[in-house]
């Protein structure tokens, strides 16, 4: 690891000021991606701003038909939250499947979303559930937020404070994990809320998480796995690597989507 200065602010406002006055600063949330990245010297921020001293960023609550999850809520907190299990059980199940127990004790939803790893689980949930990302400055819809691999709509100095999810009528996430890393080789999240159907895919896209309008249209006629029979995904826009070819991922998307619909 290269050397850096370390700050532990106690409020979001203080953290934002530090972020603005330090050009090469990075926010530290759960650290489960950032610290390994620093150890490999793949990043060299001059300043780390640790959000773990900011109180109140990990609150999980249901307000009306909207689930609020604080940015610093750990994966284990989301997985075990009675509120989440009641409102959106698919989201709790997704959190339970991230990494391993030790990672889930540290990793946060805000960190995962801000990093937008193309194989991370949470981006699929946010996109498929039509979530809203709240920052210290504004609200961003999930459709506008994920802009490419490891890229988001976040501006310099912006800090995610919470994510809000409208509660769906039906939802499920189905993932084919890489057996070693547990990251999604392909993960498909489906949701139905009123007449709106959303299908989001992680792990496969060359530009990160994406929606499948063709699948959504088919499911809006009838929300059943059978509705997806015969639908295919073009492998040209997908990732191929040592773990799976683009063609294999295209095939897996169909399989995972059907499983998710069946489970929803």
């Amino acid at each position: 690891m290269y050397a850096f200065d370390y700050h532990r602010p106690s409020s979001v406002r203080q953290a934002a000021n530090m972020l603005k006055s330090n050009g090469e600063a990075k926010l530290l949330a759960g650290g489960q991606t950032l610290i390994p990245t620093l150890k490999q010297r793949l990043a060299a921020p001059e300043v780390l701003i640790d959000l773990n001293g900011v109180e109140g960023l990990d609150v999980i609550e249901l307000k009306g038909r909207t689930l609020h999850v604080g940015a610093m809520a750990r994966h284990a907190d989301v997985a075990n939250s009675e509120v989440v299990k009641e409102a959106i059980p698919a989201l709790a199940a997704l959190a339970e499947g991230i990494g391993d127990p030790h990672v889930r004790h540290c990793g946060t939803i805000g960190g995962s979303v801000a990093n937008n790893d193309p194989a991370a689980d949470y981006p699929a949930a946010l996109l498929a559930l039509g979530a809203t990302i709240h920052t210290n400055e504004r609200k961003i819809g999930a459709d506008e937020f994920f802009t490419g691999m490891f890229e988001t709509a976040l501006e310099d100095g912006e800090i995610i404070t919470k994510i809000t999810f409208p509660v769906p009528r039906r939802a499920a996430y189905s993932k084919f994990p890489n057996p070693a890393s547990r990251y999604a080789l392909v993960g498909v999240f489906v949701s139905k809320r009123g007449s709106e159907i959303r299908v989001a895919v992680t792990g496969a896209g060359a530009d990160g998480v994406f929606r499948l309008p063709g699948f959504e249209d088919a499911l809006s006629k009838r929300f059943a796995a059978k509705s997806l029979d015969g639908l295919t995904v073009d492998a040209d826009d997908l990732n191929g690597d040592i773990h799976a070819s683009a063609e294999y991922r295209a095939h897996l998307i169909g399989v995972m989507a059907k499983r998710a619909v069946a489970a929803a």
Binding site: Y6, R8, L28, G31, Q32, I35, P36, D50, N52, A76, P101, H102, V103, H105, C106
Partner: peptide, 19 residues
């Protein structure tokens, strides 16, 4: 490297001492 920090199991190779 698993230890417990404030009662939760974590990987101590993936946490800074200052944290």
């Amino acid at each position: 490297c698993v230890v417990h920090v404030d009662g939760r199991a974590v990987k101590s190779c993936t946490m800074l001492a200052v944290q």
